[in-house]
Each structure stands twice: as C-alpha cells, then as structure tokens.
Design a binder for these strands. Structure first.
Lengths: 150, 150
DNA sequence: TTTTGTAGTTGCATTATGCAACCACATGCG
DNA sequence: CGCATGTGGTTGCATAATGCAACTACAAAA
C-alpha cells in the first residue's frame, strides 16, 4: 500500500495506520520507548536491513513521531527520540503488548512484562471505558460519522 | 518482512505485529468491529484488490482472529466474524483511533467518533494505569525481562 | 597508520502488492 | 430453459517494496 495523501482517508484508524502501519515502524517505536536512541542500536535490536531502517527512521522523523537531536553522551552522533506525538503512541504499544501476551504464549511460557517503575507491579489491563467509567465491549459501542455530530 | 515462526520472537509486541502488523489486517479488523462480515463488503469498504483480501482473510482465519461461519441472513454464503481473540483487539483499535484523532486532523476538521451505544457519549481516552489506578507516563514504566520474574 | 565504530548508500535479487481479466456457482427473470 | 447478475474468489503479469551484501565516509582509538 502506498501512502495516501493525508486528507484522503476519513477514518482516524486509517490515517494512523498510514503513518505507522508497516512492518517495522511500531517495533522501532517500541524500542524507542525502551530507551533505544541510536541507529546502530535499533539495527542490532531489530535485525532489520540498514537501508530499510534508514527509510523508516526518516519517515518517522518526517511524520513528527521521532526527532533527531544531539547525543546525550559525549559522542558526536545524533539520536532519535520520541516527540510528544510519538509518546502518545504509548497506549497503542501497551495494548498490542497485552494482546500479544494473552494470545501468543503457551501456558507457563514466560514473557517480559510492563511494570510500574515505582512499585515494580504490572500495569493494569488496558480497557475501553464509557464516559461514566464502565467497561465497554465492542458491541456496546458505535462509530458515529462526523455528519451526525451536533 | 516474512513471518517469523511464532516461538522465535520473544517480545509480545513483535509476536502481535507478526500476526496483524501488515497494511491491511488492522483495517479489516476495524471493519469487522463496525459490523462488516462479507467478502464483497470488505472489498468495497477497503478498496483493496481481491487477491490481497483473499490472502489477508485466510491468514486472519488461520491465526484465529476471524472465523468463517454460515451467513445470518438467508444467503448461502459464509461470513467472516471476529473470534474472542479478534475481539480482544478492541483496545488496540480504539487506541489507534484516538491517536489518529489527536494527530491527523486540523483544528475544526470533523472526524467520526466512537460512542457508547447506551448514552451516545464518547468513550474515555484510553490510558495506561498502574496497579493502584494512577495514570502512567512511558518514563514511569519499565519492561521486565522474563528471567527477572519471581 | 591501520583498525574499529557509527551511520549510512548502492546495486541487485527476491518478494509482495496492485490491477485487470477470468472463472465457478447460485439465484432471479423472461 | 437461456441469459444476466451477484458473490467469492483465482490467475497472470507489471510494478513496488524489501532483504542482503558490499561499499563509502567520517571520527576516534591503538
């Protein structure tokens, strides 16, 4: 799928996927959340070809999800860091992680978990809640078209 | 990226993306949440080539995210419906939707919204919460490796 | 000065995707 | 019956994306 011009796709999900919906982008962002910042570290962590990584990083920067800044340690290189827009993907990554944990491991098979730094306890399961705080199942929700907005 | 054999990738995010990380799968699943069930309806809704759709639907079925069942109306065709595993992707889709809403629309540009069927009000913003219910930023969390589990 | 490390680029082979045409089966209609 | 239409695909072929390995450029270290 080639990129659609931003204003074409009416659906927010489609627009989001247009930006991060390829094989590597979300893994790069996951690594970024885990503190990876350098080209070579992404490359080693992901095992992706360098030309592909170059293209993906450039696009993530162009889309305002990552930004290039001078390295924090003394080295003369640059680092890729998450912007505010990139940080807003946190719930997406966590939701994906939890879905992966729930459905892609055999019983008793170990996997990494996301914990609160303060108390080392696992984070809560991500939920879709109504305005008054009740848990919503997919069938209890509805996508309202913009024309129907008041 | 070719599919990795399931047990290769240690990270839950990677395993999840291995299954639904391509261009079309999440859009198919979004449509499925919106009630689309038939091959032709997916095809018209997404504008995807039929051979690609065939491949994606088959894979989603093989992965246990969609299931084929006899049509609910009288017609002799089959329908693709979300399994429990597929329904568990709800928070992922909603998180993606909310990120798209927040970052891919100009001010005053209208978009569809997800509402509670009961009261027609928008669902809450998805959040990552600690075990005691506090909102967590990415930097307040940490991925703990399985070997570090007790 | 040679080696090592970082961050790429380039060329080429392989793979995936997109498009249009075709196909098989069933139903509806005259 | 005979033919059009709708559904759910398959097939062939062109184009685009990806993967791999080799190569480059620059800086620092030995």
């Amino acid at each position: 799928m080639q990129r659609t011009s931003l204003t074409k796709n009416p659906c927010p999900v489609a627009r989001a996927l247009d930006s991060i919906g390829d094989w590597w982008s979300l893994l790069i962002i996951r690594d970024a959340f885990d503190g990876v910042r350098r080209f070579g570290d992404f490359q080693r962590s992901l095992g992706v070809a360098k030309n592909i990584l170059t293209a993906r990083l450039r696009r993530l920067v162009a889309d305002g999800i990552l930004a290039l800044e001078a390295s924090s340690d003394g080295t003369p290189y640059q680092e890729y860091v998450l912007t505010a827009k990139g940080e807003d993907l946190f719930p997406v990554i966590v939701a994906l992680r939890q879905w992966g944990e729930a459905h892609f491991y055999r019983k008793n098979e170990r996997h990494s978990v996301l914990v609160d730094r303060h108390d080392n306890k696992r984070v809560q399961k991500i939920q879709v809640l109504s305005s008054n705080g009740k848990l919503l199942s997919p069938s209890e929700t509805l996508v309202k078209k913009p024309s129907a907005l008041e």
